[in-house]
Design a protein around this nucleic acid. Structure first.
Length: 806
RNA sequence: GGGGGCAUAGCCGAAUUGGCACAGGCGCAUGGUUUAGGCCCAUGUGGAGCAAUCCGUGGGAGUUCGAAUCUCCCUGCCCCCACCA
């Protein structure tokens, strides 16, 4: 006698579609609550079974908060610009617009199939001109505030396709499409100055409620380090500036290393005697990623610049200059002073190259490895005026000395790099900048936004590494807004991170055409109260959107310093074997199949019951059945008209009810959906044992409704309680009714469990101890012993410490 | 290499945050119900032992009356690393 989930679920989804019970009201007097899920990228594969995990979780939260009297904004949209859509379009000769529309339609019907209480009137699509307009508008504001600039950056370049590749398209150093060699190539790129916000992005984490691992990851990613920049004079008369976190070890700098891309090499190529080997090395380095280059394990390589040497500003000694790929052009100044005695990478390089290793900090054994400790027993030696100082004292002393002699400055450095904002692709927002031969980079007039993508024949990037837009001459050629002369449009597009950096603001007022959202809506809804998303977005999307928000705050568009008040994160859903789901492994679960076979309510319930929400969990077909059984059991118990009579076990039912109300309510707020469902299952087991009446079922259905809304509404209607379950108030509980009269307490002797005693709840400690000592088993242990100490943990445990009588 | 995290039953996982290890589910076993299968219901289910008991949270040490939980060392696994989103 199982229920017809397909019919019931369709029925309620239709009702929700027509009556819109989940629409948010801007300006309502109720307290507002804004939960947010990361909007999906509408890929051609459709919804993945990983999507419902965060979506169901936040739907449960949203539904519960509505029942608690909140005005809830629970929106959804589509992050629809991106590479896979473009590649699909190229392959199938379709317009990316058509592909996107098809995919969004598919995602929409799948999301509706799962019964989410989204406000469908606020759907956002980042590729829609009315949305793109404001993404471009924000970019223009950044440009006007000197946060957007052009610079030369290395890109992945396939030497055979002659196009720029995304990191993802580079597989094992080769082009994913043709297998050709991929090298780093310098290309002029638009950048956003996120590093100007580095300090605030760290500091303001104190004002938000993010789970610790998100905070830690962002802080480490931004990578603040304090040290100094020091100038080294070269024999060529140039000065190379290096960044170091250990200025105290300057006397131990026995050589210098600059990155293979350093501009000095070209500038002083005439002074270099071994040009051929330097060029070879540069070519080899260009093939490697930063990731490969900084691997500590690998053998260090490098080439000395013959004919050039530097002077150590502290010791005055001549030291050689190398190029090596373990120094990155993009971090610090692209050059380092090498202190092999006290930096492990320098130590390995020095061993490799047979360079002298000098000890300037005592405390380790530099014959075996570099000694990099900053502890108090690390003391400076061989370092002139620093001798005898602890590292912590020597650092400020050296900085003072550098400042006084004009040789360096104190410097805070960040690992965070500015954001490469250009893509040589078609399916993204065009960057609304015009290149004028006489005026330079000129922003488009805001009134002319949005700048739409032109229709093109082919979406392939060109073989010069330009975006396909470059070939549309009627689109590229334009007049300069400033001088009216002939000019050209920027042909690079924005990365898809652009649209996702501010979408939560658009939801607040999704159809506004005078601003990205009205002031009124922004002030009413900000900030997002609870944002749940994947850990993989911590250092990219989440950081980018915090940066954009802070910029919008600075220019007066938004009224809060941070966009998201609370951030939580869910674990991945893995395949049955515990491996990541992927098409190539063939272990992908399609939510449609599960809904067909068991229904949306079962899928929702299972995906929340699968395990700890914050951890990865493997899918199990069998375990899904357990959740279906639970709902079948609910149905059997509740689809017949129940009586109003109290059962003889009503006291037990009442206690189960109050406990479950407490547990489910608390668990939902603390992401423990799995134990909330376990509590509902236990409650149902109690009811089926004791019998259930109409009033008891009513509360049960209200508790169940956020998790399995369709079956809850159907049974609600069958019982004729009036209105809908979703409109009910969240039930409250009475603490005193959750408690037992008697408690079974553990009795330990010397910390080992020996027996139990059952006592009235909250019995005083001395009663507990005397009852324990009266216990026959404990008496046996206590024979010939004296009680040294007793420990009582209220309602839980009595521990008696015994020693032999003397 | 850097960063973040994880390890409890045959499997997924609980454990009031230092207090009776294993709630709930899956699976399995036995019995019942059913024309049969499925469904459903009941009971049992960490290991060893006839038992009293003993052992048990990846491995090792430590702190404590008491450790899955805290500290240190070791091992194994997963995720992210800036142009996938």
């Amino acid at each position: 006698m199982n229920y017809d989930y397909l019919k019931i679920e369709k029925k309620w989804q239709k009702i929700w579609e027509e009556t819109k019970p989940f629409a948010a009201v801007t300006g309502s007097d109720k307290p507002k609550f804004y939960p947010l899920v990361e909007f999906p990228y509408p890929s051609g594969d459709g919804l993945h079974v990983g999507h419902p995990r965060p979506y169901t979780a936040m739907d449960i939260v949203a539904r519960k908060r509505r029942m608690q009297g909140y005005n809830v904004l629970f929106p959804i949209g589509f992050d629809a610009f991106g590479l896979p859509t473009e590649n699909y379009a190229i392959k199938n000769h379709m317009h990316p617009r058509a592909v996107t529309n098809k995919n969004i339609a598919g995602f929409t019907s799948q999301l509706k199939m799962l019964g989410y209480s989204f406000d469908w009137d606020r759907v956002v699509d980042t590729t829609d001109p009315s949305y793109m307009r404001w993404t471009q508008w924000i970019f223009l504001q950044m440009f006007k505030h000197d946060l957007a600039y052009k610079t030369s950056m290395p890109v992945n370049w396939c030497t055979s396709c002659k196009i720029v590749l995304a990191n993802e398209e580079v597989v094992g150093g080769a082009c994913e499409r043709c297998g050709g060699e991929v090298v780093k190539k310098e290309k002029s790129q638009w950048m956003l100055g996120i590093t100007k916000y580095a300090e605030r992005l760290i500091e303001d984490l104190d004002t938000v409620d993010y789970i610790d691992r998100v905070k830690a990851q962002q802080i480490n990613w931004i990578g603040k380090s304090t040290g100094a920049e020091v100038d080294f004079k070269l024999s060529t008369g140039d000065v190379i500036r290096v960044f170091t976190t250990r200025p105290d070890t300057l006397f131990g700098a026995t050589y210098m290393v600059i990155s293979p891309e350093h501009s000095l090499i070209n500038e002083r190529i005439d002074s270099i005697k071994n040009v051929a080997s330097v060029r070879d090395y540069q070519h080899e380095a260009a093939k490697k990623s930063d990731f490969e280059r900084t691997e500590l394990q690998k053998e260090k390589t490098g080439v000395m610049l013959e004919g050039i040497h530097a002077i150590n500003p502290a010791s005055g000694k001549e030291i050689p200059v190398f190029i090596s790929d373990y120094v990155l052009a993009t971090y610090g100044t692209g050059a380092i002073m090498a202190v092999p005695g006290h930096d492990q990478r320098d130590w390995e390089f020095a061993k490799q190259m047979n360079l002298p290793i000098v000890e300037v900090v005592q405390g380790g054994d530099i014959e075996k490895e570099a000694y990099s400790s900053k502890d108090d027993d690390a003391v400076l030696v061989n370092s002139g005026f620093l001798n005898g100082l602890k590292v912590k004292e020597a650092i400020p002393q050296m900085i003072d000395w550098l400042k006084q002699n004009g040789l360096g400055i104190e410097k805070v450095n960040y690992k965070l790099r500015d954001w490469v904002f250009s893509r040589q692709r078609y399916w993204g927002e065009p960057i609304p900048i015009i290149h004028c031969p006489s005026c330079g980079y000129v922003p488009m007039d805001e009134a002319d936004l949005p700048l739409l993508l032109p229709d093109v024949e082919s979406y392939e990037p060109t073989d010069t590494g330009e975006s396909p837009l470059a070939q549309i001459h009627e689109w590229v050629n334009c007049k300069c807004p400033k001088c009216g002369g002939d000019a050209k449009r920027e042909t690079d597009t924005m990365p898809n991170w652009a649209g996702s950096s501010w979408y939560y603001l658009r939801y607040m007022d999704a159809h506004c055409d005078t601003a990205l959202a009205s002031k009124e809506a922004i002030h009413y809804w900000s900030p997002v109260d609870w944002y749940n998303g994947g850990m993989e977005h911590t250092t990219l999307h989440l950081l980018y959107s915090r940066f954009w928000h802070k910029f919008l705050y600075d220019i007066g568009v938004v009224n809060t310093v941070e966009p998201y008040q609370r951030r939580t994160s869910h674990g991945m859903i893995l395949g049955e074997g515990g491996e990541k789901m992927s098409k190539s492994r063939g272990n992908v679960i399609n939510p449609n199949d599960i809904v067909d076979q068991y229904g949306a309510d079962t899928l929702r319930l299972y995906i929340m019951f699968i395990g700890d929400f914050e951890k990865a969990a493997p899918w199990s077909d069998n375990a899904v059945k357990g959740c279906k059984r639970f709902l079948d059991k609910v149905w059997r118990l509740a689809h017949v008209k129940l009586s109003d009579e109290m059962s003889e076990y009503s006291e037990r039912n009442e206690r189960a009810l109050h406990r479950t109300i407490k547990k489910v309510g608390e668990d939902i707020e603390s992401l423990k959906f799995n134990t909330a469902i376990a509590a509902l299952m236990a409650m149902l087991n109690e009811f089926s044992e004791n019998g259930i009446n109409r009033a008891e079922l009513k509360d049960f259905l209200v508790l169940l409704s956020p998790f399995a809304p369709h079956i809850a509404e159907e049974l609600w209607e069958i019982q004729g309680y009036g209105n809908t379950a979703a409109e009910q108030s969240w039930p409250s509980y009475d603490e005193s009714k959750t408690l037992d009269d008697m408690k079974e307490m553990a009795v330990q002797v010397n910390g080992k469990l020996r027996s139990t005693v059952t006592l009235p709840t909250d019995s005083p400690d001395d009663v507990c101890v005397s009852e324990a000592l009266n216990n026959p088993k404990i008496k046996k242990y206590a024979e010939g012993m004296q009680v040294v100490k007793t420990i009582v943990v209220k309602n839980k445990l009595i521990n008696i410490i015994l020693r032999p009588n003397k």
